[in-house]
């Protein structure tokens, strides 16, 4: 356990040396400052009126304001995080690096888990900074403290954890960062949104039953980053809770399987 933590900690150090994460923290900080200034200047009463006047059928308007800021920024955070974390494992596997690590009293499993948790910890810190920042400003402004909003930190980080498991697997097998990065982007930006739409809406246009079941099958296999970052995050932010656990559970199964394969390949690999 201690070894995993050491690897995690030094992966965090590596991430900080990679300027991307600092860049994101800076963007977050700038957005938070602008937000605080704008809200500070605006009239509280007019906001409160709107809030109370909002129809309860929609989500809580305060959460809507919060989500308007958090959604695009957390999306950006994941894009940057995929880019920045793709080389964590390949760098560890470089000749001269891995030799040294494996000569220490550390198991191969511990090394890989350390790199995995390190990547996740970086994203957790970035997202937590953004979400807690937004939440604090809004909560202070409206004296409305809804802690359920903070649970989205976990869902967004989990979304990254699923994508990062693919990056780790392809990092271990290809010893490079490009493939993992491309596949993660492909799933996050194209495949998951497409399958999400496809499984009900696009299916109408398709005749063949075989292709229909193929799309449905693919939907369940591919990690559901679209829903995790979309519907589920929105529901959690508004305090509705999670209606359908299926996207989380199937994505978790994908994560466990992917990491399981990564570890079993890494255990046997020659360096």
């Amino acid at each position: 356990m201690k070894n995993i933590w050491i690897m995690t900690w030094f992966t965090l150090r590596e991430a900080l040396a990679r300027k991307v994460f600092i860049f994101f923290l800076t963007i977050s900080a700038v957005v938070l400052v602008i937000m605080a200034v704008v809200l500070g200047l605006s009239d509280k009463a007019s906001f409160t009126m709107n809030v109370s006047g909002g129809n309860m059928q929609f989500t809580n308007p305060i959460n809507m304001i919060e989500m308007m800021i958090v959604s695009p920024l957390s999306g950006l955070c994941l894009l940057l995080a995929i880019f920045a974390s793709a080389s964590f494992v390949p760098i560890m596997l470089e000749k001269g690096n891995i030799d040294l690590l494996l000569s220490k009293p550390v198991s191969r499993d511990q090394l890989l888990w350390g790199k995995y948790f390190g990547g996740i910890l970086v994203v957790l810190i970035n997202i937590a900074f953004l979400v807690i920042g937004v939440w604090m400003i809004i909560s202070i402004k409206f004296s409305y403290w809804d802690f359920s909003f903070l649970t989205i930190i976990l869902v967004i980080t989990f979304t990254f954890a699923v994508l990062y498991s693919i990056i780790v697997l392809l990092g271990v097998t290809s010893k490079g960062s490009t493939l993992g990065m491309m596949v993660a982007y492909f799933i996050y930006i194209i495949l998951s949104p497409l399958l999400y739409l496809g499984k009900d809406k696009l299916l109408v246009f398709i005749q063949s039953d075989f292709i229909k079941s193929l799309i449905k099958g693919a939907y369940y296999v591919v990690p559901k980053t679209q829903e995790l970052m979309g519907q589920i995050t929105k529901d959690l932010a508004s305090g509705k809770g999670i209606e359908d656990y299926q996207p989380i559970l199937t994505s978790l199964a994908f994560l466990i399987l992917t990491m399981g394969i990564s570890i079993s390949i890494f255990r046997k690999k020659d360096f």
Partner: peptide, 13 residues
């Protein structure tokens, strides 16, 4: 055990 590999690399940061 201690080991000094050939062409060893360290985290450059």
């Amino acid at each position: 055990i201690g080991y000094l590999p050939e062409n060893h690399k360290y985290p450059s940061y």
